[in-house]
Amino acid sequence: MRLGRLIGKTVLAFAGFMAVFPLLWTALNSLKNNVDIITRVPRVVFTPTLANISYIIGRDSVMTGLYNSVIACGVAVLIGVVLGLPAAYAVARYPNRWAGDIQFFVLSLRFLPPVAVAIPLMVIWLQLGLYDTLTALIVTYSLLTISVIMWLAIPAFQAVPKEVEEAAFVDGYGAYSVFWRIALPVAARSLIGAVAFSFVLVWNEFLIALMLSSSNAKTLPIVASELSQQGMNVPWGILNASVVLLSLPPLLFLGVLSGFLNSVFRQKKT
């Protein structure tokens, strides 16, 4: 029994190590000169350099990609919040006979293969003269953000105790001010988690951005993948630095999202 526990703990520790080590190694490589990366025996001791990072930050294409990513994802998430949260509240609090169908419809948008959506959209945006613009990307991403935020916010609103809202109605609040002043603040913690999740989802999106942009509207994941297409000519340190830059924003939400997970499962318990 003792031995079993020991093995279990070792396996867990190894899994924990595997979870972060590849990423840490990438971060380490981004501080290395090329000679320290291209070695048959991995080098842990080396003279660090900031050349890769400053090269990445100094490149126009990377900065444009970063700007495009921030704008496209930021605006799409904002649209998702404005349209998704009220709709989720209405479905959660005023259920009618279509509520189940609406929920299924929102979920089923996730079944659509991205290629199937991206090919026609490319043709449509070309015809409208909006191909390779942020507008096209934002509109397309809004489909993602609205549906994901709605899907996650419905249970969050359902978890708000009904009595609180009913008490507010008795106090003379209208339906809209109950939403604004009661439901939104009470559910805020879970809602922030849902919104953060939708941001991570579009930030990480690749296929649609790849097909809807050719030069002006490229997002950061596209720029990063192009760096690698130049093969071994690009020093690995620079590639590693771009991977680190691309990965930082989603990781900023680590705390929010793990709190969100905890709150989801705490609700189930009670």
Partner: peptide, 15 residues
């Protein structure tokens, strides 16, 4: 354990 899933797939693929 949540860290890997937050990474962009492009980043994970490169790593």
């Amino acid at each position: 354990f949540i860290i890997p899933v937050l990474l962009p797939r492009v980043s994970a693929a490169f790593v």
